[in-house]
Structures are given as C-alpha cells and as structure tokens.
C-alpha cells in the first residue's frame, strides 16, 4: 500500500500528527538545545555546573550578536564550569516558552513566571500509588516463590556419608580376633541404625517446619491479594481521573481523590478517559483493552461490559500497565503540552 499525498494530508487534518506538531518557528532552538537551556534556567542564579563548556554549549555562548549564555568558573565543585543565562537567553526563554511547550512535548520546562503548570504533587501521588501496588506485587510473588522452594527442602538435604568397613573374609582368624571383628560389626550396625533414625527425625522436623512456614507464606500471600487488587484499581482509577481532569482543564489534584464507591464498581473496568486527541485516545483505548476493558457492543447498554479475568496477578499486572501508561502521559504536564497543540493552531 502507499498513501497518496491527499491521504497523508487527510491524516494530518484529522489530527494524526503527533510527531509533526513540532514544526519550529524561525529562531527556535532544537529540542536538545532547548533541553539544555531549560536545565540552566532551572539551576537559577548559581548557574549549572558542567564538565565542559565546549561542544553544544558553544551554540549558546558563541551566538552572535547576543549570546544566550556565559561561562563562569566553578572552582570548588567537581565540574570546572558554570553556565549562566544572559539577559538575551532569559528573554528567549520567556518569549518562546509557549511555542516550545507545543513544539517539544517531551521537555518539561518550568513556566518563566514560576506559575505551576503541572502540580508535581500529582505525579508524586501517582508514583506513590504505583509504588504501593508494585510493593504488594513483589510481596505476593516473593512469598509464593519462597513457598515453592520450601516444598523440596527436606529432599534436598544431603544423605549421611557412611564410611565403609573391611568386608568379612573366609580366611580363618583366631577366635579372639574373630570376636573382636564381630563386636566391631555389631557396634557399627547399631550406630548406623541410630544415625538413620536421627536423620529421619531431622528430615521430618525440617518437613514440619517447612510446611508450617509454607502455610504462613501462602496465607500471607492470600491475605495480600485483596489489598493488592484494590491498590491496582485505586492506581488505575486515580490515573484515569487525573488524565480526564487534565484533558477537561479541571484541577488534577482534586481528581486524585478516588471515590471509594468507584473502587467497589470493580470488577468492571471503568471506561478509558477521553482526551479528544485522536492519537492519545487511540493508545489509551489500547492500554485499556489490554487491561481487560471491553468496548460495549453497539445497541447494548454499557452496563453489560463484562468483568475482567479472574487470574489475579495477570489482571493486576495489566491494570498496573494501564495505570503506568496514564501516569507517564500526564507526568510533568506532558499531556497538557500535547493537548496545547490543538488550541495553538
């Protein structure tokens, strides 16, 4: 197949231009250079400590007629130089900040007037929710794995290595020596029986303790299943609510408070958030489907959307993946920058 130029134009008109939105205006820096300028801006008054002042930095320091940066010394630090923004550099940052936000959605640049574009508290809260579910996941899989290893513990114990004694022969021996050999054989047999009994008792004790611990581990893992599931749902719901709030221009911090009633809606996976951007919505729906979401059939009520599967770990992994995708989408205000493309046209 081949797209015709008209087909390509139709796709772009339809909004399939995530990679292309960043057509930079005259005078704007490349994405890499913009990222470097943002670092220096973030470093503030003290400037950014750098190891080399050459290379790409020269694009700023050697710029004619007005350099965007100047190099200072950094005598006490590990790095030799410090990069400072000049007035021209700061002006450039202020003037083009909006344009850069639309052009390079991957660079999270702080607002020139210090306005909080995206509350970092939201990213932190989502990261904490994600950490809770991954910690619980590690607890459950770790306990299960340990219980599995315990099952074969007694079999894995080494056998007692019994020394071999000289075999009886037909050579006639004096009665004294024959009696002594007999005594030795009886003593050896008694000792062997005692050792074998002791070893069996030892193995049984190991088995008993292993089984006991196995039960504790299994109960521990089972008791964590419900909290784990809830943690994953909470994470996914919070992330979805944040995406939805960001897309609708509402306060994402308020969206973080997951309504306990929504958690109880489980095992129905609530619909994927809709941002209005065709490409983003397409990937969100894909992640949602992977997490067990099923689109409602036409003509049927959405209430009949089937429950997600019953395999806890698989189901929760998929949910976490869905939530991670959404958390990554909003992190640092990326979604806002992506959506700004539509309003900046």
């Amino acid at each position: 197949m081949k797209l015709t130029p008209q087909g390509r134009a139709a796709c772009r008109a339809g909004g399939l231009d995530v990679g292309r939105a960043g057509t930079r205006r005259k005078g704007m820096l490349s994405e890499t250079l913009w990222g470097m300028m943002v670092q220096v801006w973030e470093a503030g008054q003290d400037g950014l400590a750098v190891r080399y002042s050459g290379g790409a930095w020269e694009q700023f320091t050697g710029r004619e007629p007005a350099p965007y940066m100047r190099v200072g010394d950094n005598p006490d630090g590990r790095y030799s130089y410090r990069m400072h923004l000049t007035d021209a550099g700061r002006d450039h940052y202020r003037v083009f900040w909006d344009a850069y936000a639309v052009c390079y959605q991957g660079v999270a640049a702080p607002h020139p007037d210090g306005v909080e574009v995206w509350p970092s508290a939201v990213d932190d809260a989502l990261a904490r929710l994600g950490a809770v579910s991954s910690t619980l996941s590690a607890e459950i899989t770790g306990s299960d794995a340990a219980a599995g290893r315990l099952a074969g513990l007694a079999e894995a114990l080494p056998e007692v290595g019994w020394p071999s004694l000289p075999k009886p022969t037909d050579v006639p021996l004096s009665p004294d020596i024959a009696r002594a050999v007999g005594r030795r054989d009886r003593a050896a047999a008694a000792a062997r029986r005692a050792v074998e009994q002791a070893a069996a008792r030892y193995k049984a004790a190991v088995d008993r303790q292993a089984a006991k611990l196995g039960e504790v581990l299994a109960a521990h893992a089972a008791a964590l299943e419900e909290p784990y599931r809830t943690a994953c749902i909470r994470y996914a719901l919070a992330a979805a609510a944040v995406v939805q709030a960001a897309a609708a221009g509402r306060d994402p911090v308020a969206a973080l408070k997951v309504d306990p009633a929504t958690v109880r809606v489980w095992p129905r996976l609530p619909d994927a958030p809709v941002t209005g951007d065709i490409e983003i919505d397409f990937s969100l729906t894909r992640a949602w489907t992977a997490a067990g979401g099923r689109p409602a059939k036409r003509g049927r009520s959405r209430k009949t959307a089937p429950a997600v599967g019953s395999d806890l770990m698989r189901e929760c992994d998929a949910l976490t993946g869905y939530a991670d995708a959404m958390a990554g989408l909003v992190a640092g205000g990326k979604l806002l920058r992506l959506l700004a493309r539509h309003t900046s046209r």
């Binding site: 197949m1 797209l3 008209q6 139709a10 772009r12 008109a13 399939l16 065709i278």
Partner: peptide, 26 residues
C-alpha cells in the same frame, strides 16, 4: 486544509483506524 479535513471526516471509524495504521507505517 479544509478539503483534507473534509476527506478525513468523510471516512467512517473503521476507515480512519486503517488510515491511522497506514499513516503510522508511512
């Protein structure tokens, strides 16, 4: 641009999905 947008809107959902996939590969 309006013509291109009209062409896009004339496609149904399935056709748009196909175009999205072909566009991505392109």
């Amino acid at each position: 641009q309006d013509k291109a947008l009209a062409a896009w809107q004339a496609l149904n959902e399935r056709q748009q999905t196909y175009m999205r996939i072909i566009y991505r590969a392109d």
